[in-house]
């Protein structure tokens, strides 16, 4: 049995050919992966918030901050998803991007898509507050721990 296997192995080595096993990843794949990443993040946050809704934890204050943070991250993800979509949709001629970055602009005619693109590009207006509330939640958790420790010491 092992002899037959050895013969077969040697023959495979002596007669090589294309395996066709390695898939080539072209340019649009990164865009799709990135969008799928946002969708995955969105679905995980929805799952997380649903879980917290069904089984409300305590204490309330840190969890409230955490939920706000997650909700803002949810909005940010949706915003980013839309922003990426329209960024991909807009033609190169829709933007004027000279070397002077202070002169960059969206060229007329200004369509709804271009407005949406403009607005959704300001995603930091969502993710920065989300991060801020995450910090608040962590600090609130910390305060809770401190008060628990002092209660135990007391």
């Amino acid at each position: 049995m092992s002899f037959m296997f050895a013969i077969s192995f040697i023959l495979f080595l002596l007669i090589p050919g294309p395996s066709l096993a390695v898939q080539v990843h072209g340019p649009p794949e990164g865009y799709y992966v990135h969008q799928i990443g946002h969708l995955l993040f969105i679905s995980s946050i929805i799952f997380f918030l649903t879980f917290l809704k069904l089984d409300p934890p305590s204490p309330r204050r840190p969890w409230m901050f955490l939920k706000i943070s997650m909700f803002l991250f949810l909005l940010w993800n949706i915003n980013a998803l839309i922003a990426h979509y329209f960024s991909n949709m807009l033609p190169r001629e829709a933007l004027d991007t000279p070397l002077d970055i202070f002169s960059h602009r969206i060229l007329p005619p200004i369509t709804t898509e271009k407005y949406i693109y403009f607005i959704t590009r300001n995603d930091h207006l969502l993710c920065v507050p989300a991060m801020f509330f995450l910090v608040l939640a962590l600090r609130a958790f910390r305060q809770t721990l401190d008060s628990e420790d002092s209660a135990e010491d007391g």
Binding site: H104, P108, F118, R121
Partner: peptide
């Protein structure tokens, strides 16, 4: 005419820095 992207870049740049600070604190 058109819409300047400068405000977008400003928010982008400032927001990125604040995000780094917040994330480190977090």
């Amino acid at each position: 005419e058109g819409i300047s992207l400068y405000p977008v870049y400003l928010v982008d740049f400032t927001g990125a820095i604040i995000m780094v600070v917040f994330s480190v604190i977090a």
